[in-house]
Computed example of a mutant assay.
Amino acid sequence: MSTLKIALQKSGRLSEDSLSLLKKCGFSIETESGELKASVANFPLEILFLRNSDIPQYLMDGVADLAIIGQNLLAEKEFPIETIMPLGFSKCRVAVAVPKAFSFTSISDLNGLRIATSYPETTRRYFKSQNVRIELHQISGSVEIAPNIDLADAIVDIVSSGNTLAKNNLKEVAVILESEAVLAVSPKIKLNSKIILERFLFRLQSVLRASQSKYLMMNVPNTKIQEISELLPVLKSATVVPLSLEGWSSFQTVINETAFWDVIDKLKASGAQDILVCPIEKIAL
């Protein structure tokens, strides 16, 4: 029987979030600490735990059929690897940062200066597009310390909250690209693996839809049902159940969480009462 092989970062926050997502999809993952491969008891899926920077090559070679990986790494490698969907976690950006004392007005201020980075190709492309000449120093790990030890005048690195930059007396001055975890597929995935992939994607999409949605219930006057229906984007049609209180109904639907906050005042103004918002585990369409 064919098995779908998915590559994950072997350690770190991206690995933890990826495993959490797979478990929410109902995959029973059998793994022990330090293992580089894990099987799934209830689905033809095998998990490969790899060094993050090696994952694009494994996809290119067809060793892995899929991977959960950061967009920033795919951009750095520039391999012809298709991205199936964004996953909504591990959001960050590749940014240029300089010492706080640096008087920065534009990216041209870095012309001729030393830039330290773990993303040399991304950095080269960006500064070339800006017509800025740089002296590039490729290093791995602890990029933020480079200006403090006079290895570089500025850096290009991954930024999430910005706390690490602040701790190293640096400030962000330009964003090269935005990134998040994505599901990527090997260009060499076999036909029988593609069949399993469809089943895998159905589970994944059901969980991702649910994470972005909420189940909404409220009591509304019958005379306002149509008005409230027009305020809310719904999957297909809202459920309306008559209450024992004459002239009132329970109005139930599924909405995007952000949509609720956009219309809450309008719902109340239209007479909605006892508004209840509940989480959803999965949505299968």
Score class of each variant (00 low, 15 high):
161 S>Y: 03
74 L>S: 00
197 L>N: 05
277 V>D: 04
190 K>G: 02
115 I>R: 01
44 P>C: 03
44 P>Q: 04
280 I>K: 13
279 P>C: 12
179 S>C: 02
238 A>M: 11
131 N>E: 13
202 F>P: 06
72 N>E: 09
182 V>Y: 01
117 T>D: 06
111 N>F: 09
250 S>R: 08
253 T>C: 15
171 K>C: 06
74 L>W: 00
184 A>L: 03
126 Y>S: 03
126 Y>C: 02
85 M>E: 09
202 F>K: 15
55 I>S: 02
79 F>L: 01
168 N>Y: 12
78 E>P: 02
275 I>F: 07
210 A>Q: 14
271 G>T: 12
275 I>K: 10
1 M>Q: 14
244 S>P: 09
271 G>H: 10
146 A>T: 06
237 S>D: 14
23 K>I: 13
107 I>F: 00
224 K>F: 09
220 V>Y: 01
7 A>V: 03
36 L>I: 06
222 N>I: 00
142 S>D: 15
63 V>A: 00
226 Q>F: 10
233 P>A: 14
199 R>T: 06
240 V>S: 08
281 E>T: 15
86 P>Q: 06
227 E>G: 09
278 C>W: 12
202 F>M: 14
57 Q>F: 02
164 T>P: 03
5 K>Y: 05
187 P>W: 03
110 L>I: 01
5 K>W: 03
178 E>C: 05
13 R>C: 05
153 D>F: 03
50 L>P: 00
66 L>P: 09
5 K>E: 05
130 Q>R: 11
152 A>G: 09
256 N>Q: 14
113 L>Y: 10
2 S>R: 13
110 L>V: 00
60 M>L: 08
252 Q>D: 09
280 I>T: 12
17 D>I: 11
46 E>W: 02
244 S>V: 10
200 F>N: 02
209 R>Y: 14
52 N>S: 12
34 G>S: 07
260 F>V: 09
243 L>Y: 00
5 K>T: 12
44 P>A: 05
208 L>I: 15
65 D>G: 07
129 S>T: 02
172 E>I: 11
199 R>K: 12
29 I>S: 13
6 I>Y: 01
4 L>I: 06
264 I>H: 11
219 N>V: 07
268 K>C: 07
254 V>G: 10
253 T>S: 12
51 R>A: 02
205 Q>R: 15
224 K>N: 10
144 E>I: 03
128 K>L: 13
261 W>M: 09
89 F>D: 06
218 M>H: 06
89 F>S: 03
78 E>Q: 14
224 K>P: 03
35 E>C: 10
23 K>R: 15
274 D>F: 11
191 L>V: 14
267 L>W: 07
126 Y>T: 04
211 S>G: 13
17 D>F: 12
54 D>N: 01
